[in-house]
Simulated assay, not measured.
Amino acid sequence: MATAGGPTVRRRQLGSELRRLREHAGMRIEDVATHLECSMSKISRVETGQAPIKARDVRDLLQWYGVSDPVRIETVMQIHKDAQQQGWWTHYAEVLPSGMATYAGLEADARVLRSYEPTFVHGLLQTEEYARAVIAAVRPNEPQEVDQLVRFRKERQALLTRDPDPLELWVVIEESALRRPVGGREVMVAQLEHLIEATRLPNVTIQVMPTSKGAHAALAGTFSLLEFEPRTPTVVYVNSIAGNVYLEKERDVRTFIQTFDLVRAAAPDPHDTSVTLERIAREMHAS
């Protein structure tokens, strides 16, 4: 059983282990819900790492599932203890959209992040001014929260320069997103220049999908693939106005991996990106 990672990954590991032990013991989710006197949805969320569980309930379940090995019990309880730690993102819990705290935890624990962005520049690559314009546009009725959300986004960006193991980021961005003057032309030109600088980072790869390319495999919308240390399953994150979806089933993950591979194969070579960004910036500045 893997034990590496921060609190979000640890919570997922705990849930996965509890699910494995339940299934090995021949128990159903409804059996566990009855035993702990809670809802089946609560057990489901615990087993998928989306909800906390008390230490005494973990010990109770281990005993109920027939786990008697003291080393195994101690390992599981240590994972539970580590999962209770508070990540830096919890300071923004009151203003974050539903599910964003979970995503921030996964992103912080990830080793590799691959993303397709049809509408905006990826959050880890946004300038402060661009981020402010985007957040203010999508949350027009909550101006008092914009500053906090901009700070939250800036803190996330530290992942790209963390020492000694920066996040490896590969993003495919639609050209149309880069031509939309979010915040005005000056803000957008500065954002394009920031992207040019980002292409020089050894752990960042950016591709621009030309509008002239037409239809391609990812037209259904934005998604991200988060990869962790070995033995920790990859997670697919799909974000939409309707809500956030996390996919972990092997079949779903494999589909999105194949989709991303098709998209990056269809986009121009990453070595051409800086030239493309410079051209768009010149055209926007001149218009």
Rank of each mutant, 00 (worst) to 15 (best):
A2W: 00
T3V: 13
G5W: 01
G6A: 02
T8V: 11
G15P: 03
G15A: 08
S16I: 08
E17W: 00
L18D: 02
M27A: 15
M27D: 11
R28K: 15
D31Q: 11
D31Y: 04
T34V: 13
T34W: 10
M40F: 09
I43G: 08
I43V: 15
S44Y: 02
S44W: 07
R45G: 03
R45W: 01
V46Y: 07
T48L: 09
T48C: 13
G49P: 13
K54N: 08
K54D: 11
A55Y: 04
R56W: 06
R56V: 08
R59C: 10
Q63M: 00
G66S: 10
R72T: 12
R72S: 13
T75P: 00
V76N: 08
Q78Y: 01
D82H: 10
G87N: 12
W89G: 01
P97D: 12
S98H: 14
A101N: 15
A110W: 01
S115T: 14
T119E: 14
V121R: 01
Q126E: 06
Y130F: 11
Y130R: 07
A131T: 04
A133F: 07
A136F: 04
D147W: 05
Q148M: 13
R151F: 03
R156D: 07
Q157N: 00
L160W: 05
T161L: 10
D163S: 14
P166I: 06
E168P: 00
I173F: 04
E174Q: 11
G184M: 04
Q191E: 06
L195T: 00
E197W: 06
A198V: 05
M209C: 02
G214A: 09
A215I: 13
A220Y: 07
G221F: 11
G221E: 10
T222L: 10
F223N: 03
S224N: 06
S224E: 15
L225G: 06
L225W: 11
E227S: 12
E229G: 12
P230L: 05
P230W: 03
P233C: 06
N244A: 15
N244Y: 01
E250A: 14
R254Y: 09
I257T: 12
T259W: 05
F260N: 03
R264M: 14
A266G: 07
P268T: 10
D269C: 08
I280R: 04
A281P: 03
E283T: 04
M284P: 05
A286V: 03
A286F: 02
A286Y: 02
